[in-house]
Design a protein around this nucleic acid. Structure first.
Lengths: 328, 328
DNA sequence: CTGAAAGCGCTTACAG
DNA sequence: CTGAAAGCGCTTACAG
């Protein structure tokens, strides 16, 4: 900038004005400065700018895994939200590791991001980052964070699961299985609660062997999906509590002898290409991202509402697998 | 930092030394400084640091769409590569819009990212960013950039398509269709070239009606997929040149009367759940990301090889759809 | 309309 | 082992 000023024969401040399109520069002076900028290939250094201005126009996003298709639309929605406010997105994967999550959040704070959007690592029940409590505006998405008091944007896991299971009940099923993630994962327990509520609503009992919580590894899920439709109280339908579980269950059921109905939580790519199509309770990952970003920028704009829990509705999409009649 | 120095009764430089773990501080002094840091909740401002050091420890990634599942693993791989070098990732979507791509690249340059990884917008044949030519280390991935001389990391589209089509030929097919993206998309023409090469290798003619290039919108692709197995010279197999095309073709063929064999370029999520499973020529998006990041950091480390075109091999995965025998 | 001085929070290059 | 001075590239708050 100094070079540009020298070249154009003006002061530093004038260059600054031209670069930032501020008023108070004669057209002629402006032109001279522009010329010098072009000649020297000058680009404003936003880092230096930030140092004075305070705001970095940067948002940090910490999620579980950038490679997970579920987070793609969320990621993109946050980007778009940030972009609408002239901000860039720095993001990273926690890889479900609380230490790595913390490390990432700290690095983002050291870069002085204006705000942080965090998908908390699944099993982190420790108190999160002191810096978040200290000051950086933060919104949690997809899962609630430990015991922290902060904004959180979630899908309605309870209501969605309840609706999905009620759909099976309405189809005539009375023995329905539930396969979900480990109990320490919040969404898993919420969805289980929804399952139990739907069963209770219909006055149906739940046998112990119909509920299976645990790692979403294919081996464990396969075993559960194989055993439930067998035995003394065989289920005629299964509710799969997330997309990893659903995909495995589809495989197992396709290989089984009797048709078993299936409703899954989370939509997944070509669920409609399968025969039968997979009926799902879809959550809107992009809407989650949008809501979180909106909330964040409201806070950045100075609004100070007390921390809220925002729940977004889910949507049941019937495609066939959930409409299979019970085999008595 | 000034406050910490005052509180600990030391100079600024001593605080700096402690914060950065530099030697030359007595344990006792170190302790006092650490205490003051804890008390004041001090965090180094990396922005200020960067201003002096020159390097930002930040890598920029510009791709088509953060929400696209294909780019998830690439995104993650770049993140991991950057992380291994202590760098953070700023990324954004070009949304296939050359202007937006340029705007993003400029914003990243203004932030003084150390390096840039770019998936060029599909149809950009203009000369790309002057700043890239000017200096920021840049590696292009997945598609070559205009006419620029820079590193580019690609999948072997030609070889992959050739292998996929040869697989169909080996299965007894003699009339094979090709459905791909618009001709201005580099990968589309490369794959078409691979198709033609495989047909030529086998001494098979290619009828004009067997080749369809154009937008990957479902309507157009459906029309092509419906017409090819009909008419006077009906194809018995189709090669779909990318995953968007493949998904649409699967839908159409499933609804058709005669079985038509299918091989797709790009793997997609539950291609193995479908009946039959979809045979694909898979490219390794994570490997693309890794190779690009490696190349970038080699340059950042000071190595100055001349720009290279790095091609990664693809892998044929037979799952059933590509092994359907020709219906004569 | 224009510019010189001070300062954002750190590090570099020195000197003690 | 320790610290004062200068400077990274910009903007803020003034003064002319």
């Amino acid at each position: 900038m100094k070079d540009v000023a020298a070249r154009a024969g003006v002061g530093l401040k004038t260059v600054s004005r031209v670069v930032n399109g501020e008023p108070g520069v004669t057209p002629d002076t402006g032109r001279r400065v522009q010329e010098a900028i072009g000649l020297l290939g000058f680009r404003r250094n936003d880092g230096a700018r930030v140092l004075r201005k305070g705001r970095t126009a940067t948002v940090g996003l910490v999620l579980e895994d950038l490679a997970d298709p579920f987070y793609g639309p969320l990621n993109r929605a946050v980007e778009e939200g940030a972009r609408a406010h002239g901000a860039l997105l720095i993001n990273g994967s926690s890889a479900e590791d609380p230490d790595r999550e913390r490390e990432l959040a700290l690095a983002l704070c050291a870069r002085r991001v204006d705000g942080l959007i965090v998908v908390p690592a699944g099993d982190d029940h420790r108190c999160p980052e002191p810096e978040i409590r200290a000051g950086v505006a933060t919104v949690f998405v997809d899962r609630p964070a430990g015991r922290i008091e902060a904004d959180v944007v979630l899908s309605d896991s309870f209501g969605g699961a309840r609706e999905g299971v009620a759909h099976l009940v309405a189809g005539g099923h009375r023995r329905i299985g539930f396969i979900g993630d480990r109990p320490r994962v919040h969404t898993a327990t919420e969805r289980l609660r929804g399952y139990r509520a739907a069963m209770a609503d219909a006055g149906l009992p739940v046998a112990g062997s119909w509920v299976s919580l645990g790692a979403t590894a294919p081996e464990r899920v396969s075993a559960a999906a194989r055993s439930m439709p067998a035995g003394p109280a065989p289920v005629t339908a299964v509710f799969a509590a997330d997309n990893r579980v659903t995909v495995t269950v589809v495989r197992v059921l396709a290989a089984g002898v009797r048709p078993v109905a299936l409703v899954g939580f989370d939509d997944f790519e070509p669920a409609d290409l399968l025969r039968p199509g997979v009926t799902v309770v879809a959550q809107d990952a992009a809407a989650l991202g949008r809501a979180a970003t909106d909330r964040l920028f409201q806070r950045l704009a100075g609004s100070r509402p007390s921390p809220a829990r925002i729940e977004l509705p889910t949507r049941l999409i019937a495609r066939g697998s959930g409409e299979i009649a019970p085999a008595h």
